[in-house]
Design a protein around this nucleic acid. Sequence first.
DNA 1: ACTTAATGTCAATTAAACTTTACATATTAA
DNA 2: TTAATATGTAAAGTTTAATTGACATTAAGT
Lengths: 68, 68
Amino acid sequence: MTNNLKVFRARYDLTQKELAEEVDVTRQTIISIEKERYEPSLTLAFKLATYFDVKIEDIFLYEKSTDN
Amino acid sequence: MTNNLKVFRARYDLTQKELAEEVDVTRQTIISIEKERYEPSLTLAFKLATYFDVKIEDIFLYEKSTDN
DNA sequence: ACTTAATGTCAATTAAACTTTACATATTAA
DNA sequence: TTAATATGTAAAGTTTAATTGACATTAAGT
């Protein structure tokens, strides 16, 4: 799973803090997702997609089978 | 957040066990999501959408602000 | 040089997804 | 009636998302 959250955030000229407040999480969560330390919950993914007015698939790219 | 996972599963004529194996989780996880006890991770949502050949938004319906 | 804003790391904790096991019920088939 | 399949519940444990707080670095402005 990869994402281009940073690109969308830049496009909207927002700081991590501002985006965090928009989608109701902390700044650390935004950082962790941008740096792909972990994946967002489905709800957070929806909140981000809704905020940027795109589909989840536009921000998050699923690469099937990192494992099996 | 609501979902129509049960509908998709029925459409493909799969048991919970079969679907669970297809997307690499346990049967309990499928049950919990169908009964909306909790939401799937983004990865699992992608696996399900990919399996049924639809978009995440087709299976999971986000209703903004259950809270704030 | 000093301050402020933005980004980043790290560690400890809480909350929620997911697993595992065990058991209950209903349905269908032998 | 018995066995097998499908769905369901419940509890305890593991894993991971998300929070909180503290501190480091860089860039921009005064």
